[in-house]
Design a protein around this nucleic acid. Structure first.
Length: 282
DNA sequence: AACGTACCCAACCGCTTTTGC
DNA sequence: GGCAAAAGCGGTTGGGTACGT
């Protein structure tokens, strides 16, 4: 038995809001404010809508401070940078963009921004070098002691633990950081990134002794395992999100499994998390 | 002009988190 | 601390529109 529905679905209107409904909701909220019970609001306001629907309509569309229209390049930058750090925490990202809603940002990312990045029009490398464009607020402050400007979240936002520090490739050896795609060759080659010795994989290089590198098909990731002193220290190295491309080719991307190089050299690339880029096989 | 496809975005769904008792 | 209700959130869906054939 599931949870009780939030409203009587038989007797509520669904679908697009009419101008009259908008006006009714706006008028009610102008008089009574948004403080109170959204579930009870429709009845009080005389709307045949679910409370959740009213809330969503207000938050995503009717609020007076909502910014409608296209996103600016600066907003693109902020979204990309924060997405690289937090993943799809749209609400947190939207909070950095005055007038934008989580739904707006999410839709914009899914329909346009992702494609811009894939087309190489936006490089996360340059973004991470210039991410001081992100306004700082008490809830999301820029740390001054890290190269990659991590952000510190209040406890209430800490349920998501992003891979520490950034899931972004920062190597400069001919490797475009726009989600690890070399613009010319569209080639993801581990051999391109092995020089990016990591001091940031949660530990220093010296702490990793006799590591082994494994490819997990289940978790769609590569992990390094520190076998020193019998520790079961496993550090994720790469996470493809959609499954490791064992067949070498995914969407025209050429993926090599040259992980042995890492194991023998004892150095590891920084985090590269393709699940954020959502490069999925069709 | 008609049809098919791709794209955009508002709205919905259902799970998680927060709040109040 | 435990529970239920409300609010928050992110993923998904579906209708409208633009574009290509």
């Amino acid at each position: 038995m599931g949870r009780a529905p939030c409203c009587d679905k038989e007797n509520v209107k669904r679908g697009p809001w009419s101008p009259d409904e908008d006006a009714t909701l706006k008028s009610y909220l102008a008089t009574h404010g948004t403080v109170g019970n959204w579930i009870a609001l429709p009845k009080k306001a005389g709307l045949k809508r679910c409370g959740k629907s009213c809330r969503l309509r207000w938050l995503n569309y009717l609020r007076p401070d909502i910014k409608h229209g296209g996103f600016t390049e600066e907003e693109d930058t902020i979204i990309c940078t924060l997405y690289a750090q937090m993943g799809s925490r749209w609400s947190a990202i939207a909070s950095k963009l005055p007038g934008r809603t989580d739904n707006d940002v999410k839709n914009y990312w899914n329909t346009k921004l992702k494609k811009k990045i894939m087309a190489g029009k936006i490089s996360l490398k340059s973004l991470t070098e210039n991410d001081n464009t992100i306004p700082s607020t008490p809830s999301l402050t820029q740390s001054s002691n890290t190269q990659n400007s991590e952000y510190n979240f209040p406890a209430s936002q800490n349920q998501y633990s992003p891979p520490s520090p950034l899931p972004i490739m920062l190597d400069s050896n001919n490797f475009d950081a726009s989600f690890g795609l070399n613009n010319n060759e569209k080639d993801i080659g581990f051999d391109q990134i092995h020089d990016a010795v990591v001091s940031e994989i949660g530990t220093s290089d010296n702490n990793i002794i006799n590591p082994t590198v494994s490819i997990s098909q289940d978790s769609s990731s590569i992990a390094i395992q520190d076998q020193a002193e019998g520790d079961e220290f496993v550090e994720p190295l790469m996470d493809f999100g959609f499954g490791f491309p064992h067949d070498d080719h995914v969407n025209d991307l050429n993926c090599h499994e040259r992980v042995d190089d890492f194991a023998s050299s004892g150095c590891f690339p920084e985090w590269v998390d393709f699940s954020y880029a959502d490069i999925k096989p069709n």
